[in-house]
Structures are given as structure tokens and as C-alpha cells.
Amino acid sequence: MYAVAFVEDEKCIANKGCRLCILYCPEADTLKFDPVKKKAYVVESRCKGCELCVVVCNNAKHNAITMVMR
């Protein structure tokens, strides 16, 4: 089992322009912007579980990302 990041659509405000997790995730093409839903999402197979996205999202008080076991 691995811990990977998970974005809750209801809490994510990427539709208002937030891109913090997408920019600061150390891995390329892992946290992406869904142009249809206008939310951030995680490509789980690429996520290394570092939790930096959780830190940046929480620091901005959005609290939209949690770690889940897969």
C-alpha cells in the first residue's frame, strides 16, 4: 500500500484560479488541472506521497487535499 494525495472537489478552488498544489508538487504532470471540472486532480500512479501539496493547500486555508492509502 502507498499513501497518495487526493483532492476533494467540493473544497478545491482551482475554479477561482488557485494553482498552488499544481505548481509546488515536485513531480511533473502529477497534480493537474481538469479543464472540464475546473478542479485540481492527482495522477495517482505518479504521486510519491511527499505531502507537500497538503502543506501548500492547508497553508492557504483551503484544506482540500488529504492522503489516502492505495
Binding site: 494553482r19 499544481i22 505548481l23 515536485p26 513531480e27 511533473a28 510519491k48
Partner: peptide, 28 residues
């Protein structure tokens, strides 16, 4: 530039740097 990140395919694939390594962010 940096604004393309998240919507355009990046020029870096999966690699073996440690989880959370800032070198990986810098490469992006």
C-alpha cells in the same frame, strides 16, 4: 513559462529523486 505548468505536458518524466526533493521542483 511557468504558467503552462498543469495544463501542458511537461518536458520531464517520472524519475528517481526522493519524494519531495526540491531539485525536482527546480527541474520543472
Amino acid at each position: 513559462g511557468w504558467k503552462d505548468i498543469g495544463s501542458a505536458k511537461e518536458l520531464i518524466e517520472e524519475h528517481s529523486l526522493c519524494a519531495g526533493c526540491p531539485e525536482a521542483i527546480a527541474f520543472r
